[in-house]
Amino acid sequence: MKNRIQELRRQRGWSQADLASQLGVSRQTVNALERGRYDPSLPLAFTIARLFGAAIEEVFEPDPD
Rank of each mutant, 00 (worst) to 15 (best):
R50F: 08
F52L: 05
Y38I: 13
A20C: 03
Q22F: 07
S26F: 09
N3C: 07
M1F: 09
A45L: 00
P43H: 10
W14F: 14
R27K: 08
T29S: 08
T29K: 11
R4A: 13
N31F: 12
A32G: 04
R12T: 10
N3P: 08
S26I: 08
A17C: 03
S26A: 05
N31C: 08
L33A: 00
Q11V: 10
E58T: 10
N3L: 02
A45K: 00
R27P: 01
K2A: 09
G53P: 05
G53V: 03
R37F: 15
E57S: 14
P43R: 01
D39L: 13
V59P: 06
E34T: 12
E57W: 13
L19M: 03
G24Q: 06
G24V: 10
L44K: 01
L23G: 06
D39C: 13
L33R: 00
P43M: 02
E61W: 06
R4H: 15
F52V: 08
P64W: 15
L44C: 02
S21A: 14
A54R: 15
E58F: 09
I5T: 08
R27F: 02
G24N: 00
A20V: 00
A55F: 05
S15D: 12
G13S: 11
D65N: 09
F60D: 06
Q16I: 05
A55L: 07
F52I: 02
Q28Y: 15
Q28L: 11
N31R: 08
S15V: 10
A54I: 12
A49V: 11
R50C: 07
R12C: 08
M1G: 01
S15E: 07
D18K: 12
A20Y: 04
Q22W: 01
V25G: 03
G36L: 14
R12Y: 08
I48D: 00
R50Q: 12
F52H: 05
A49G: 11
N3H: 05
R4L: 14
R27N: 05
S15N: 12
I5Y: 03
A54N: 11
P43Y: 02
P62K: 12
V59E: 04
I56T: 11
D18R: 10
A49M: 03
G24A: 09
D65L: 12
D39H: 05
P62N: 08
A54M: 15
Q16D: 10
G53F: 11
I5W: 01
P64V: 12
T47W: 05
L33D: 00
R9K: 13
G13H: 12
A20R: 04
E34F: 06
D65R: 13
G24Y: 01
Q28E: 11
T29I: 14
S41I: 03
L8T: 09
L44S: 02
F52M: 04
Q28A: 07
Q22L: 09
D18S: 10
V25S: 05
T47G: 01
L19N: 00
G53E: 01
F46P: 02
N3R: 05
S26H: 05
P64F: 14
Q22S: 07
G13V: 10
M1D: 00
D39N: 13
Q6W: 11
L33S: 00
A20S: 01
N31Y: 14
A55G: 11
G24E: 04
E58H: 12
W14S: 03
Q6P: 03
T47R: 15
L8H: 09
A49S: 09
I48C: 00
V30W: 02
Q11P: 06
R35Q: 13
A32M: 09
V30C: 03
R12M: 10
S21V: 07
